[in-house]
């Protein structure tokens, strides 16, 4: 079994329901996100459109975070999930430096690395990840990519799917349908300081950290 994730960007409407569900399910602290939805506006008025891209850990087959972790806090599970043992993590941030997708952060409350685990605790109980359950348009498709009869495998076979930064050789197990350079390449869009929909983000001080 190898669990994978697919987001159909043609369906996603940027409601951020997945983001909130993830925050609640995993008690993600303020100023940190395991999953977030990025908005990118394209075109020139009046020919404009807004795209929405949920971003989370890609659970790579050759995960750089797992390789660089000095204490195996980041480790593979049998089902392909790249999980994290927060009790073992020493907070060196090597994984933050290694992840090409910016999916790992240092939790300001525990001072350890944290990231999306595909809700490993729910999956082990036979439940779907919280973001999948919350999505009102079923844009998130989760399942076994080694099973040709699973919904995700069928979706991958029937649609043109992409992964982020394939050139990094990490073999991500997170796919996007309907994604383009603008959605998936962070350097293909401009980030204008002070011109975002929200700018004043509360940042927690790391407790006992720096």
């Amino acid at each position: 079994m190898k669990l994978g994730f697919l987001v159909d960007l043609n369906l996603c409407m940027g409601c951020k329901g997945c983001e909130i569900a993830c925050k609640v399910e995993n008690e993600v602290p303020l100023s940190s996100w395991r999953l977030r939805v990025k908005y990118v506006d394209i075109g020139t008025f009046p020919e404009t459109k807004r795209t929405f891209t949920p971003l989370r850990c890609n659970h790579c087959e050759d995960a750089p975070c797992e390789r660089i972790c000095p204490v195996s806090a980041l480790h593979y599970m049998d089902n392909g999930i790249v999980n994290i043992d927060k009790e073992r993590c020493i907070g060196c941030a090597g994984c933050v430096m290694a992840c090409p997708y910016g999916a790992i952060y240092i939790d300001p409350e525990t001072n350890t690395a944290d990231k999306c685990t595909y809700c490993a605790h729910r999956v082990s109980s036979g439940l779907m990840p919280a973001c999948v359950v919350a999505c009102p348009v079923e844009a998130n498709i989760f399942g076994d990519i080694e099973d040709p009869t699973s919904a995700i495998s069928k979706y991958i076979m029937e649609h043109d799917v992409k992964v982020r930064k394939p050139e990094k050789g990490t073999h991500p197990k997170h796919y996007y349908a309907g994604g383009g350079d603008v959605n998936l390449n962070p350097l293909a869009s401009v980030r204008e300081e002070g011109h975002q929909l929200f700018n004043n983000i509360t940042h927690l001080e790391h407790i006992g950290g720096h």
């Binding site: 908005y39 506006d41 869009s189 204008e192 983000i201």
Partner: peptide
């Protein structure tokens, strides 16, 4: 990318702040 950006005029309008210097 330097050719893509002027063509698409793509601007990130909502995203959380970058993690900064770790």
């Amino acid at each position: 990318v330097e050719h893509t950006i002027p063509a698409t005029n793509a601007v990130v309008t909502l995203d959380v702040a970058l993690p900064g210097i770790v």
